[in-house]
Design a binder for these strands. Sequence first.
DNA 1: AGGTAGTAGTGTATCATGGACACTAATGTT
DNA 2: AACATTAGTGTCCATGATACACTACTACCT
Lengths: 222, 222
Amino acid sequence: MFPRHIKFAALAVDVAALSFIDGALNVRLVTTQVPVFKGKRALPGALIRPHETAHEAAVRVLEEKAGVSVKYLEQVCTFSTINRDPRGRVVSVAYMALLSPDELRAVKAREMHGAAWVPLSRIPHLAYDHDEIIQTTAARLRGKIEYTDIIRHLLPQAFTLTELQEACETILEHPLDKRNFRKKLLAQGIVKQTGKSAHASAHRPAALYMFTASRKGAVDLI
Amino acid sequence: MFPRHIKFAALAVDVAALSFIDGALNVRLVTTQVPVFKGKRALPGALIRPHETAHEAAVRVLEEKAGVSVKYLEQVCTFSTINRDPRGRVVSVAYMALLSPDELRAVKAREMHGAAWVPLSRIPHLAYDHDEIIQTTAARLRGKIEYTDIIRHLLPQAFTLTELQEACETILEHPLDKRNFRKKLLAQGIVKQTGKSAHASAHRPAALYMFTASRKGAVDLI
DNA sequence: AGGTAGTAGTGTATCATGGACACTAATGTT
DNA sequence: AACATTAGTGTCCATGATACACTACTACCT
């Protein structure tokens, strides 16, 4: 219904999928096959198809390139710089995906060649403007950790309070006081005991907690 | 460089330009000429051109349809629902623009037919998904007012503290305490006196203030 | 079995911040 | 000169934030 010259750009999504691995925040990277960037690392992405929304495309990318059906997916920003893709004009909608260790196991089960989890601290220079996308996404996550319970999507269904605290500390990049952290957390009723204990370590077992039903309003987590 | 069938969608920007008029937050609306929505109100928007970014397109829309060169423009969200535009697939990047009364005078100088400022409380049902865009934009503004000094873009270069407080109250939709408001504001050093006074009313003149240089970090405004 | 190493779990005292609250000051108008 | 109206100011209290150190529990080792 629009003349052809109006449709000059391709539409894409790029997804920064984040997950904790060995206590560090990792992002899922793939290896580009596009000639100009041949061999370079990039975020998983794909062109949006005529019959899907950007959100649906992001879900598909995660399924195809990370082999996971993600539970938390949030639009971050749209990048429309003219020469951001050497193949032609591509406008890309960036998404942040958060994966819990539970979901991560499904990824590991069917590992794909050329794709890998890379700690945020060791990310190489990426293809396209993906460096910028990751910076923007990480900043968004860091901001939301303080006033939402977004961290729940990065933790397993059951977790110890120490694990939760370490997750927050990793993202905020500064230590938190154990007693104050627990006091506030329990006062807000964000988590509750499962009744079970973790017996993973060779020491005193920690009580396992789970998140309570998500609140409608904002929470004051940290 | 991409095959033609990849470029199936048109790209657009829609801009929610906000400004205070008579103490109320208003948004700039135009009247659609598109047959399906003929006569309906909508946000000013336009298709992105091949040689401009979304941001540049938003700037252009404001110049063409609101007659103003805006100082504050922020990307809000990208809408990609498949049938959001009856003319065909259009993916739209929504922007929030904030105009000070100073900038507003330039708009009034060359008023355009079919365009008008409408108080947020009296917005009719709009064309496309523009109702949703306005809701999202207003929510973004309300959220940012508390932890940034974004309000500065909605005020004139010089203003009284009462004006500043009323602006915050209007956006937050609840009253603030005069003394506490001033205490916090001055403690943070966000504003400073200009040395001049407003002699507009028939009563005690108020001191005129201006914002200090924008801080790098977040401020705790309210 | 007893000791050791290592993590889990708990409370108080102080300090800073946020919120409630009411009067005096300055100006133009009558 | 009195009045009407808006501008401008400080204290007290409650709440939340922070600093801080010991006991409890378990597996492992000998």
